[in-house]
Design a protein around this nucleic acid. Structure first.
Lengths: 107, 107
DNA sequence: GTGTATATGTAGCGCGGCTACATGTAGTAG
DNA sequence: CTACTACATGTAGCCGCGCTACATATACAC
């Protein structure tokens, strides 16, 4: 997949993967890879800043866990984040309808 | 639709709208608006530079028409552009499958 | 003790779509 | 004939964000 087709959809992915569960950054990257059958392999320089941005926006909340001496910052959706996820999903549907419609149209 | 969700997909739209017909820039903007039921209303500052970029890339060819004293630069797909369009369509399918899969997945 | 997997983070680049502006013609409303 | 609107093309520069590259540190296997 071309590099920055992702632009504008990363937030949706991150919110979606946190829907109904708490995960830390590294696990989020793995979860996205799993769910996409390896198609998504996001670099840490993409994911970590995005998570902090979403937290600043109030969509995520984080806390430090220490598991066997190892520090993990686990993220979870806030109520506001769940609304944002719903909005992102609606927008995704609209987006695919619009672009898909143009790409499929006959001349 | 949010502003730059379009990023990385504009080329596909432009190639698709020129599939099987010649159009000039202004008409391309109108055609995209029509095909998307008004959802796409691209500014000229987006479309014109993109068309020139695609021409430089060899995907489009242009010529000046003069219709009732008015200059129009009409674009058409080159053979290479048709291949690019096919590639863009394939990529679009992959892209929607991957992102859509993650967005729809249960926790 | 060396290497690999796990884990988090930042600085700065690059690109592409957008805003805002500049320019000019054709038709029409008054 | 003048003003306004639709048509038509184009450029300069901003801005946001995903990516590259790098820095840092622990647990575990060999």
């Amino acid at each position: 997949m071309k590099a920055d087709t992702l632009r504008g959809h990363l937030d949706a992915l991150l919110l979606a993967v946190l829907d109904g569960r708490k995960l830390h950054g590294y696990a989020i990257i793995e979860a996205l890879s799993l769910r996409s059958d390896g198609a998504l392999d996001l670099p840490t320089g993409t994911v970590y800043p995005a998570l902090r941005r979403l937290e600043r926006a109030g969509y995520l909340a984080s806390e430090w866990d220490v598991v066997s001496g190892r520090k993990r910052r686990t993220y979870r959706l806030t109520r506001s984040g769940q609304q944002a996820l719903a909005a992102e999903r609606a927008e995704w549907r609209e987006f695919t309808t619009v672009i898909g419609g143009v790409l499929r149209a006959e001349a």
